[in-house]
């Protein structure tokens, strides 16, 4: 079983299950300084395609790829948040199982796969480490919606990549503070209002999507 999984993991799930039609000039030109950016966005779109393959075809190879990349990072995140290695391992597995079960809820026009997995991991951490209930905002009646536009999904993935790069480029001390906030080492009154991150683009995009939704609900 295990060997089979490893072999499967090598298969290129991205080309096996194309769900988004290329629309030609949607998005990014791979020239000069944009090149790194373009490659990183392509990687994010590959994750999107893998989640879609899990959703539509219960694709184990695509799942194995997501698992190989994300599970060790979820585990690390949970350990930095105070979980023991055993608990973090167990919890990271559960997070990935949740990804399989809830793949139909993922919307690439509203979140990057990394963002979505983070929220699943965060909620498991609250359950396990703090043993508290987590009140969630009321669900929005997004559907029934057509498959999100490739350009919308691509734009959101690109903006999340930009955010990640801006985070990496922050002075070490500032980055440390943001990390500590997310690892649960800072209370809300200790969180600095000024993070130095270029926030606002993702918010504007989601805000527009919400306005469209409210409009159609009228």
């Amino acid at each position: 079983m295990l060997n089979e999984m490893h072999t499967l993991a090598k298969a290129d799930a991205v080309t096996v299950m194309p769900v988004y039609k290329r629309t030609g000039n949607a998005g990014i030109r791979a020239t000069g300084a944009n090149r790194v950016m373009a490659e990183a966005t392509t990687k994010r779109m590959a994750w999107v395609t893998q989640v879609a393959a899990v959703r539509d075809a219960k694709d184990k190879a695509a799942f194995a790829e997501l698992f190989a990349y994300f599970a060790p990072r979820v585990k690390s995140f949970l350990m930095k948040s105070g979980a023991s290695p055993d608990l973090a391992e167990e919890c990271a597995q559960e997070v990935m199982v949740t990804l399989w079960n809830k793949a139909h809820l993922f919307d690439p026009a509203k979140a990057s796969v990394s963002t979505w997995i983070f929220t699943i991991a965060r909620n498991r951490r609250i359950d396990l480490l703090r043993k508290q209930k987590r009140p969630e905002p009321e669900d929005l009646p997004w559907g029934p919606e057509a498959e999100p536009e490739q350009a919308d999904a691509m734009g959101l993935q690109q903006e999340t990549e930009q955010l990640g790069q801006a985070l990496a480029a922050l002075p070490a001390e500032q980055r440390k503070l943001i990390e500590r906030a997310y690892f649960g080492e800072l209370s809300h009154s200790e969180i600095a209002a000024e993070t130095g991150l270029p926030l606002g683009t993702i918010k504007s995009r989601i805000r527009l999507a919400l306005e469209r939704l409210r409009h159609t609900m009228k």
Binding site: P72, F77, A111, S114, T160, E179, Y182, I202
Partner: peptide, 17 residues
């Protein structure tokens, strides 16, 4: 949604275990 995206990036940046 944006602050959750920051969390996702912090998680991605964590040294894999």
């Amino acid at each position: 949604a944006e602050f959750e995206a920051v969390g996702g990036e912090v998680m991605l940046d964590a040294e894999p275990v």
